[in-house]
Design a protein around this nucleic acid. Structure first.
Lengths: 123, 123
DNA sequence: GCTTATCTACTTCAAGTGTAGTATAATAAT
DNA sequence: ATTATTATACTACACTTGAAGTAGATAAGC
């Protein structure tokens, strides 16, 4: 797996949110804020297909794109890549966030998760 | 500030580790594993200078490059960018790591940090 | 059946990135 | 001073990314 560029990732996020869908529906339902031409969305979907991130199937007049890589799998891969690239450890990543000022609610949410992660696993 | 490409980031990491240094010294001391030609390192340093990440000063026969952006500042910026790009919150980032299997020592280190972060701040 | 709208496939193009080559200036060696 | 070494500045070049245009197939309207 390879890390995706920003625009392709935005398209994947849209696909993850809606499930299999056509370019136009994706653009209207989720990608409108970017102001992309419909050809642009098509280009990004083609590139994602080339990279094996989505499957294409003909659905009547349109193409239907289906995500082949799930959001959770991609995030699991990407988060580790982020650590390897610059932080080395989860600790250092969170410390960097904290230096920039992590919000109180973010901190609490994280703490709750950590409790769960450790609760589920005995020493 | 803008996020740096992989290779330029590697050069910055070397600079952060050694402090102000010449291209050749950086290559030999920290960048050897990449197998880059010395011209390559020079190119990356020039690009970093263009982007304002390092300062150049003539030191005798060589250039001396000094980081202008500190590692902590860059990490604070980058870590937040990582969240905005894909995860939304620190919680979701750590959850993604956990799905891939966070190591026990990483988890404990993180827990220790969280204790410190909350220890310093009541409630 | 011809016109119009829609979609996809293919092409384009500029900027950024990865990697290094060339040309030239400066230094060191004899 | 001539030669060899070293460093830098500039150029090159393929590939990727961001963004869309064009051409041709298809379908829908009338």
């Amino acid at each position: 797996m390879k890390r995706l560029p920003d625009t392709e990732l935005e398209v994947m996020k849209a696909l993850w949110a809606t499930g299999p869908d056509t370019p136009r529906a994706l653009l209207e339902a989720r990608l409108a804020p970017f102001g992309w031409a419909s050809n642009t969305v098509n280009t990004y979907l083609s590139r994602l297909a080339d990279k094996g991130f989505v499957a294409v199937r003909r659905e009547g007049k349109s193409n239907l794109y289906t995500p082949l890589v799930g959001q959770e799998a991609y995030q699991a891969f990407d988060s580790r890549a982020v650590l390897n690239r610059l932080y080395g450890s989860p600790r250092n990543f969170v410390a960097a966030l904290a230096r920039d000022g992590m919000r109180q609610d973010e901190l609490e949410e994280l703490r709750t998760l950590l409790d769960q992660l450790n609760g589920g696993q005995s020493q």
